[in-house]
């Protein structure tokens, strides 16, 4: 009915945080800590989450337009026309929508973890060089 509103809410918050962090550091710069561990900046990682949230929510919103659940006129959601449908819509946002946002965030956390390990992975040449 309007489950995409939960990921949109998260996307708005993440965008605000990302914009705040963007001003502090270079988004694409990878920093190296004392132990030689390369780190991808959080603002760059947040960009990935943002793209998944906004992109996914946009395509999901299109699905709702396709099914006639979103309209171009007030109140924009057909479920808002009566109290019963509104209650069902809120329940769907609270269940489906929140689960969607949680799954995207969990997958993003996994991507960040894997990306951090990949960027610190030694290439064959580096391993050979260390052994020589």
């Amino acid at each position: 009915m309007a489950c995409f509103l939960a990921p949109v809410t998260e996307a708005v918050i993440v965008t605000a945080v990302e914009k705040k962090m963007e001003g502090k550091a270079d988004v694409n710069a990878v920093s190296e800590s004392e132990g030689g561990i390369v780190k991808i900046p959080l603002s760059r990682k947040l960009k990935w989450l943002n793209r998944m949230l906004w992109g996914g929510a946009f395509l999901l919103a299109f699905e709702h337009v396709w099914h006639g659940e979103v309209t171009a006129w007030f109140p924009f959601l057909t479920a808002m026309s009566n109290a019963e449908d509104t209650a069902e819509m809120l329940k769907e946002i609270g269940t489906n929508g929140v689960c969607m946002a949680a799954l995207i965030t969990a997958v993003w956390a996994g991507i960040c973890r894997v990306a951090d390990s990949i960027i610190n992975r030694k290439t064959d040449e580096e391993t050979e060089g260390a052994n020589a």
Binding site: G55, F58, N96, C99, L103, I104
Partner: peptide, 21 residues
Amino acid sequence: LGILCFMYWGAALMWLVDALF
């Protein structure tokens, strides 16, 4: 192309939740 990837993966994950429900 990264934008396209993230957009499709985001939508696919959201529809996966819909499908599970």
